[in-house]
Design a protein around this nucleic acid. Structure first.
Lengths: 275, 275
DNA sequence: CTAATAGTGTCTATTAGACAGTATGTT
DNA sequence: AACATACTGTCTAATAGACACTATTAG
């Protein structure tokens, strides 16, 4: 083996392919909350937890749905790739983005060895002026869990995608799960796993961080905010407890929301109280 | 653009280099708790939170210390790489391993574009029968934080490495920090960032998961366990509170630890109570 | 008036923090 | 006996859960 006297000398001589290189992609979980129908003039809209998927029109997995994503360029910052794709699919930037996990199973892509880093983006749908790319569509997410088997249904109004995941607790870790795909007929790649892990992460983080506010407009009622929590967590919350906790993170404004067929509610705003 | 009639046909024709491929490495944060000196025959050993580093004997960053790590092979499972390296450096397997984060700054490696996925491994030092690889060494970790500036000192008895990190809170995220290296003269690559993030993660996780037990022998006293918590968290805990919380996760055995110059203590064991 | 949500008061149960006390080994 | 840690009892403060109640609008 040749010896070098300086880093410069070494670098000049370095062969990038002494290990076979591989491809890196990024997959983005774009989460939001959608408003459903209003049953009658008094009731609040139903809310749905939703995720953006795109339909593949090329091989591999042609015509299947998958997460928006793509290759990371050789000279592109890792975080730039998901931002670029987000801009592409939704035409908005300045979005909350968080890295989740890196998937590297040898055969996860039939073309070649592909490593994929998943990101989670949270957006307020009101910011979307329907500039979605043509293959993209919002799917409402329905999660049903029983005996550590999770049934996930994604529905965009015309198409329903279903998959089933087995959740196994790992040793000495309590909160860490191993996920396995039991059934999946309609999603490409290992995306059921990626989605499952993303939903788990969001559910956890919403309880101890301020990330929800990335999905809210500037002004919102506490009822709306509670609805968002409830749809994501998949359970009802008690009003007084919710208000006690959220009070620290919000501030009441003088604005009021009226015309809803019932008592008007005060509009609140996110309060960033970093002592 | 050519059209294909089947996935097989498409794959046969696929050019892996339609995007320039890049290199993937893995860096491992191997954490443990070391026993220090015993001041007098009655006192407990001091405990140190420690991390395993290796000294580079090749370019780049020749003679600097860094995290154990290496390239992920084209046909190697992503998680296999850190396991292989762990085996190599410490000669033990069957270790708790958790993926942390993927670093992808364009210029983080002077050789070429390298993406690195970091892993955290927790080990019980009693399992190490001094089969460390020759370049590896345990460093005690000392963390001092003031006004969001974190000073980290790593010490292996003969060498002291220091670096300084700036912690910035991100918007609407409460618990997520951005880390920036302010000073670093002795660690290779962006490893100060990787170490900082790993310490944060461990500190958080130790409070709401069972991962500590990966650093403990099968039988331990509650005093020892408390010491481990205290060294990792960097603060003293109150005995009764600690015992109340830990009681759910441990079970008392009939074994007793004696000969310590004071009242003997019961030996406990991890209780995996997945209802 | 009615249906529906907005918003509050309060009791209770649980949990966390603090401190003081008792117990028991080795030298 | 003295020291050092092991271990427990209990008071208090803070927080979470539950429920019942009042308030206010559009129709």
């Amino acid at each position: 083996m040749k010896t070098y006297n300086s880093e410069e000398e070494f670098l000049k001589d370095y062969n990038k392919d002494s290990y076979e290189r591989l491809s890196l992609t990024t997959d983005i979980l774009i989460f939001s909350v959608s408003s459903g129908v209003q049953e009658n003039y008094r009731k609040l809209n139903e809310k749905y937890f939703s995720i953006l998927l795109v339909k593949r029109d090329d091989y591999p997995f042609k015509d299947k749905w998958c997460l928006p994503g793509g290759f990371v360029g050789y000279n592109e910052e890792l975080e730039e790739a998901p931002l670029r794709i987000l801009k592409n699919e939704t035409n908005i930037d300045n979005i909350y983005l968080e890295q989740l996990y890196t998937y590297g199973e040898v055969n996860r892509d039939p073309r070649m060895r592909v490593i994929s880093t998943s990101y989670m983006a949270l957006i307020d749908k009101n910011r979307l002026n329907e500039n979605l790319s043509k293959n993209a569509s919002w799917f409402n997410v329905l999660v049903l869990e029983e005996n550590n088997i999770v049934d996930i249904t994604l529905d965009n109004g015309t198409t329903t995608l279903k998959f089933k995941i087995k959740k196994t607790l790992k040793e000495k870790t309590t909160d860490r799960y191993k996920f396995e795909i039991l059934e999946n007929d309609s999603l490409a790649f290992d995306h059921p796993l990626v989605i499952m892990a993303g939903i788990e992460r969001l559910k956890n983080k919403i309880e101890y961080t301020d990330i929800v506010f990335n999905m809210m407009p500037e002004y919102f009622t506490l009822g709306e905010l509670q609805q968002v929590y409830e749809t994501i967590l998949g359970k009802k919350l008690l009003d007084p407890a919710f208000r006690r906790i959220i009070a620290k993170k919000t501030e009441k404004t003088t604005k009021v929301k009226t015309g809803e067929g019932h008592r008007p509610s005060a509009l609140f705003r996110y309060k960033n109280d970093k002592h």
